[in-house]
């Protein structure tokens, strides 16, 4: 894709907040947003698994972004984003889901080299908003199977 084309490319991004940071997930990847659902923790599960969520008759495994980032568990109920993968849907716990924003690919930049390696693997760059940065999250990088593999290796 040439620069000229990507400059014109704009997309809708769902903004989510974890701690003080604002993250953005391209809305095309989001199957559904569950507002503060009941959750069930799974003893002995890999650390990054935040718990189970009831989603349309299925039991969904949800990854905790806080735990992935090495942060303390949230004390209040969290929202869940549902993503589709070829192996079925999975969820992502975030502190709260915010508004949908319009961002342009021209404002997107890759991860800085100085970013800690763990986050290098999780983040896919960031969009420059006027007053702050919107960290790009790609659902593929957060798939439980992939996380389990990367932690094992």
């Amino acid at each position: 894709m040439t620069n000229e084309n990507s400059a014109q490319q704009s997309r809708q991004v769902c903004s989510v907040r974890v701690g003080d940071t604002l993250y953005g997930v391209p809305i095309a990847h989001v199957l559904e947003i569950l507002g503060k659902p009941a959750t069930q923790s799974v003893p002995l599960a890999p650390h990054f698994v935040g718990g189970l969520v009831h989603y349309r008759g299925e039991v969904l495994t949800a990854v905790s972004l806080r735990r992935l980032l090495g942060m303390e568990d949230s004390s209040s109920p969290e929202d869940v984003l549902v993503f589709e993968t070829p192996e079925g849907p999975f969820g992502l716990f975030v502190d709260s889901v915010g508004e949908v924003m319009q961002v342009s690919d021209a404002d997107h930049e890759p991860n800085p080299a100085t970013l800690e390696s763990r986050r290098q693997a999780l983040f896919a760059g960031a969009w420059k908003l006027t007053d702050q940065l919107l960290v790009t999250l790609e659902p593929e990088r957060l798939e439980p199977v992939r996380l389990a593999a990367s932690l094992a290796g």
Binding site: A45, L52, V59, A148
Partner: peptide, 19 residues
């Protein structure tokens, strides 16, 4: 019986989950 994701099946003690 609802199936569990692969990462949770690996724990071995669980045969699934239910509501």
């Amino acid at each position: 019986v609802k199936p569990l994701a692969a990462v949770l099946r690996e724990i071995g003690y669980y045969a699934g989950a239910t509501i």
